[in-house]
Structure formats: structure tokens, C-alpha cells
Computed example of a mutant assay.
Amino acid sequence: MERKSETTGYLIDHMEAKIVNPTTGQVVPLGMKGEILVRGFCVMLEYWSEQAKTEECISKDGWYKTGDIGSLDAYGYCRIDGRIKDMIIRGGENIYPAEIEQFLHTHPKVKEAQVVGVKDSRMGEEVCACIKLVDGQECTAEEIKTFCKGQIAHFKIPRYVLFVNSFPLTVTGKIQKHKLCEEAEKQLKDGK
């Protein structure tokens, strides 16, 4: 029941999937996170009249780069943890925002949390948590960082914590992480 409820399901017949390290392209062991690649009858041959996009997304041997970060278990069940474009690379460590967001949602004062990478001259990127608090609650950045200590890896603890009233949304209601990142970087620059 856990596999059925906490994964996207298992690989269908006549399809192949593999999980690779996004930077090296090497296959990772079962259970480890990486970029999900699929191959089979449901993968298109190419993008119509867009050779560059085809070469970017589909390998010569037919593997399609989904752009999703996830893992496969020994039974062929797939878990999706986020998008590769949302991945933060901090000092060589790959950090998946969805993992930190899920943890921050366990804080009783947090209504909604979004994690983005902001530019940093020393580390390349730093983790920034943008948090919307439960109505009527007050919280400090230090309180959030203390909540994280000992619970998640030290390099995943947000260096910056910003409290927001709303998130930039698309017309369909999806959070625009790139705009959130721009707003966070502007706010941090203005605050220094």
C-alpha cells in the first residue's frame, strides 16, 4: 500500500527507465536520486523541425530526459522528488528543494514554504526558504534554522529565510520559482 500511495507507480510493460546523476550521466544505484530517463514506444522520435531541442532531450539511443528528479526502487516503482531545473548546486552538493519544503511544512507555524537557490559568490548557490506563515503567527529566521538543525543535513539548512505574504503565480495557479528566485535575490541584495 505504501508503494502505491507514495510513488507514481511502476514501470509499464515494454518501457525502460533509469536514474542517472544529472552532472555525470552515470547510472545511480536503486533508491538513489537522480534524473529520470525513459525509453520505449511512448517516447517521440524528435521535436518537429527543432533539431537542437531534440539533441538536448533525446539521446541517439532513444533515452528521453524527463527533467524530473526521482528514484526507482527494486520493484520498479518510481518516486518523483522535483524538477532538475529547481535543483540547487551548493558547493558541489546537489540539493532538491522539494525535500526541504516537505520538512519545513512540518513546522507548526509554516503555512507554505518554497525553497529556491540564490546566487552566492563563494558557494555558487545558497539555499533560501521563502515562507508564508499560518495566519496570526510570528516567527524568526533563527527559529526556522534551529528547527532544521539535527533534522536535515547541515548543507540543506536554509542560509536565508524570507517571510512572504504571497508567491508569484501563473494563471493556472502554479508557483513561478524563477520569479520567486529573482524577488528573493533582489530582497537579499537590498537588505545587505
Results as ranks from 00 to 15, higher is better:
Phe155Ala: 01
Leu169Pro: 00
Gln137Arg: 08
Arg159Pro: 02
Gln176Val: 14
Cys42Arg: 09
Ile144Leu: 10
Lys189Val: 08
Glu138Leu: 05
Glu185Lys: 06
Gln151Ala: 07
Asp190Lys: 09
Phe103Glu: 10
Gly9Tyr: 12
Val20Gln: 07
Leu72Asn: 02
Thr7His: 07
Lys18Met: 12
Ala184Gln: 03
His105Leu: 14
Lys4Ile: 15
Ser166Asn: 10
Ser71Asn: 03
Met1Trp: 05
Thr172Val: 09
Phe155Val: 15
Ala153Asp: 14
Lys33Ile: 07
Gly40Ser: 11
Glu126Trp: 01
Ala113Gly: 11
Gly136Val: 08
Leu45Met: 05
Pro22Leu: 05
Trp63Gln: 09
Val127Asn: 10
Ser121Glu: 11
Ala141Thr: 03
Glu50Val: 01
Val38Tyr: 00
Gly31Val: 05
Val110Glu: 09
Ile88Gln: 03
Tyr47Arg: 02
Lys132Val: 14
Cys130Ser: 07
Val118Pro: 00
Thr23Asp: 09
Ile58Trp: 02
Ile58Met: 05
Tyr160Pro: 01
Lys177Thr: 00
Ser121Leu: 13
Lys145Val: 08
Ser166Lys: 12
Lys149Ser: 06
Lys145Pro: 13
Ala74Asp: 14
Phe147Ile: 09
Met32Ile: 03
Lys65Asp: 08
Gln137Val: 04
Lys132Gln: 05
Thr106Arg: 14
Cys130Trp: 00
Phe147Pro: 02
Phe41Cys: 07
Ala153Trp: 01
Glu55Cys: 08
Val161Lys: 02
Asp73Gly: 13
Val161Cys: 08
Lys192Val: 07
Ile175Cys: 01
Gly92Cys: 12
Gly117Cys: 06
Arg79Trp: 09
Ile12Gln: 06
Glu35Gln: 11
Ser49Lys: 11
Val115Ile: 11
Met123Lys: 14
Ile19Pro: 01
Ala74Thr: 09
Glu182Gln: 12
Glu112Tyr: 01
Val171Gln: 13
Gly9Arg: 14
Val164Ile: 08
Lys85Ala: 04
Leu188Lys: 06
Cys181Gln: 15
Val164Leu: 03
Ser121Phe: 15
His154Cys: 03
Ile80Ala: 12
Lys4Ser: 10
Glu125Val: 05
Glu35Val: 09
Asp81Thr: 04
Lys145Arg: 15
Met123Ser: 14
Glu125Leu: 04
Ala52Glu: 15
Pro22Tyr: 13
Thr172Asn: 11
Ser59Thr: 15
Leu162Cys: 08
Arg39Glu: 03
Gly70Ala: 06
Thr106Asn: 13
Cys57Asp: 14
Asp61Phe: 04
Phe167Ala: 00
Glu35Cys: 03
Leu45Val: 10
Asp120Thr: 04
Cys139Trp: 02
Cys78Arg: 02
Leu104Glu: 06
Gly82Asp: 01
Gly70Thr: 08
Lys177Ala: 00
Ser59Val: 11
Asn94Thr: 12
Glu183Asp: 15
Thr54Trp: 10
Asp13Leu: 06
Gly92Ile: 13
Leu30Met: 15
Ile19Val: 13
Met32Asp: 06
Gln51Met: 10
Glu2Asp: 12
Arg90Val: 14
Tyr75Gln: 09
Glu183Ser: 10
Ala17Trp: 02
Asp13Met: 06
Lys145Phe: 05
Ile100Met: 02
Gln176Asn: 14
His107Arg: 08
Thr106Phe: 05
Gly70Trp: 00
Ile131Pro: 01
Lys85Cys: 03
Thr172Arg: 15
Val164Trp: 09
Thr140Pro: 07
Gly76Ile: 02
Asp81Leu: 03
